[in-house]
Each structure stands twice: as structure tokens, then as C-alpha cells.
Computed example of a mutant assay.
Amino acid sequence: MLERTRRKNRTEVTFVLPAGHPAGEASVVGDFNDWRPGAHPLAPRPDGSRAVKVTLPTDQQVGFRYLAHGDYWFDEEAADGHDGRNNFLNT
């Protein structure tokens, strides 16, 4: 799930994964962190879900994916687009 808050010249995007899916650590990787695994790990929330907030410039298309323990890459169904390899988010 994606939560977005648009500000004057930036968009705050919170990437959210449901509790226990997938098991183990997970991070979001993409254009905004040079695709570095672990740069933006998702942290537990009180409701059991996991999330991380990333601030991005407005009016851009950003590629991203999730990466979980065991080199498990997976997609975000709520992304603005998919190209068969990556998810896309329009800020």
C-alpha cells in the first residue's frame, strides 16, 4: 500500500507492507536511493504492518520495488504503473 502526502514542492510517500507479509526484513529500493538494498528498511508499526516514509520531488516518475530477506523481490499492486520489471510511482 502507498500513502501519499503532497506538499508545496515535495511528495511524502509512505511504503506500507501488511503484517507478516513477507516474513522477515524488507526494504524499498528504487531510483531515489540508487537501488541500494537496505537503504530504506520498513519498520514495524503499532498495528503490525511495516512502513517507511520517503520524501520525493514533485512531478516525477520514480521506479521502485520491494526487497525482502532471501533476495525476494516483489511488487506493489497499488503502484501507478508496472513495466514487467519495476513499479512506477508518479509524484
Results as ranks from 00 to 15, higher is better:
His40Trp: 12
Phe32Gly: 03
Arg10Val: 09
Glu12Thr: 14
Lys53Tyr: 04
Pro57Gly: 00
Asn86Thr: 13
Glu76Ser: 10
Pro41Ser: 09
Phe64Pro: 02
Pro44Gln: 06
Leu17Asn: 05
Asp31His: 08
Asp34Ile: 00
Lys8His: 13
Arg85Asn: 11
Ala39Gly: 10
Tyr72Glu: 03
His21Ile: 15
His40Gly: 05
Val54Ile: 14
Met1Glu: 13
Thr14Leu: 04
Gly84Thr: 03
Ala79Phe: 06
Gly20Trp: 10
Ala23Lys: 15
Arg50Tyr: 02
Phe74Tyr: 13
Thr91Cys: 12
Glu77Val: 12
Gln60Pro: 00
Arg4Lys: 14
Thr55Lys: 04
Asn90His: 13
Leu56Phe: 03
Leu56Arg: 03
Thr58Met: 01
Leu89Glu: 04
Arg4Tyr: 07
Thr14Ala: 11
Gly63Thr: 05
Thr11Ala: 07
Trp35Val: 02
Asn87Ala: 03
Val16Trp: 06
Arg45Cys: 07
Pro44Phe: 02
Val16Lys: 11
Arg45Ala: 10
Gly81Asp: 04
Pro41Arg: 07
Arg36Asp: 12
Arg45Gly: 00
Ala79Leu: 07
Asp80Ser: 05
Ala79Trp: 06
Thr55Glu: 12
Arg4Pro: 06
Asp80Gln: 04
Thr11Arg: 02
Arg10Cys: 10
Leu2Ile: 15
Leu42Ile: 02
Arg36Leu: 14
Asp75Pro: 08
Leu42Val: 06
Ser27Tyr: 08
Ala23Phe: 07
Gly20Glu: 07
Pro18His: 03
Glu25Trp: 15
Gly81Thr: 01
Asp34Gln: 14
Gln60Asn: 00
Glu3Trp: 11
Thr14Pro: 05
Trp73Met: 07
Asp80Tyr: 04
Trp73Val: 09
Arg36Val: 15
Gly70Val: 01
Arg36Ala: 15
Arg4Thr: 10
Arg50Thr: 06
Pro41Met: 04
Asn87Arg: 01
Val28Ile: 10
Glu76Met: 03
Pro18Trp: 04
Lys8Met: 09
Leu67Trp: 02
Ala39Asp: 14
Arg10Phe: 11
Glu25Pro: 13
Val29Asn: 09
Ala39Leu: 10
Ala39Phe: 13
Asp47Phe: 07
Gly84Arg: 03
Val62Gln: 02
Val28Trp: 08
Gly38Tyr: 14
Leu2Tyr: 03
Asp59Ser: 01
Asp71Phe: 10
Asp59Lys: 06
Thr91Gly: 12
Gly70Pro: 01
Val54Gly: 05
Asp34Glu: 14
Glu3Phe: 11
Arg65Asn: 09
Arg10Pro: 00
Ala68Phe: 09
Phe32Glu: 01
Pro46Asp: 09
Ala39Asn: 10
